[in-house]
């Protein structure tokens, strides 16, 4: 038996689980529950595990701390809790809001300039991806503090585009 403890972030809570396993199976400890499981088979992306006598097929894909789990016809998304992670909000002055790219794509137009006052839901920029375009809207009223992109620029998902301050 080898044991390991993992932390998941579920509904904003840090949830600790512990696995004690051998090659055939083991015990999954979660809160007060001790759940025995048996492996039926395993492969690179998942396996087949029996819990309480019921078999469950699963696939898991890891992307850094994010885990996508396919189990019995449904998909779940789980995040590893990372206590040491510097909070993004802490890097910013209070009340600031970062507009990031929802999709990899191309910036078509920027509708505001630094210093502009914007209303909630006002269009800040328009971007295009996969033959579709969408507007990036101000999530709150405020002032444009910074613009980190220009028309025509190819951006990655999550790239910082615009900062709005209260």
């Amino acid at each position: 038996m080898t044991g390991r403890e993992l932390h998941w972030e579920i509904d904003g809570q840090d949830v600790a689980v512990r696995i004690e396993e051998s090659t055939a199976g083991g015990i999954f400890r979660f809160g007060e529950q001790n759940i025995p499981f048996t492996y039926i088979s395993r492969h690179r992306h998942g396996g087949w595990v029996s819990v309480d006598g019921k078999p469950h097929e699963f696939y898991v894909l890891q992307d850094r701390g994010s885990h996508t789990v396919w189990l019995d016809g449904r998909t779940y998304r789980l995040e590893r809790a990372n206590k040491g992670r510097p909070s993004e909000a802490a890097e910013l002055a209070r009340g600031d809001c970062r507009i990031t790219a929802l999709m990899p794509g191309r910036i078509l137009r920027i509708e505001v300039a630094v210093g502009d006052t914007v209303a909630e839901k006002q269009i800040l920029a328009t971007m295009e991806s996969m033959k579709m375009e969408t507007s990036l809207l101000a999530p709150m009223a405020g002032r444009v503090a910074a613009i980190h992109c220009r028309p025509g620029q190819i951006v990655e998902m999550g790239e910082l585009l615009i900062v709005i301050e209260e």
Binding site: W8, V49, V60, H67, V69, L71, L78
Partner: peptide, 16 residues
């Protein structure tokens, strides 16, 4: 479902 949490935990690498 607890089985989904189990599946993720079985596949997760030990360190974050």
């Amino acid at each position: 479902p607890i089985e989904a949490l189990l599946a993720a935990s079985l596949s997760a690498s030990p360190a974050t």
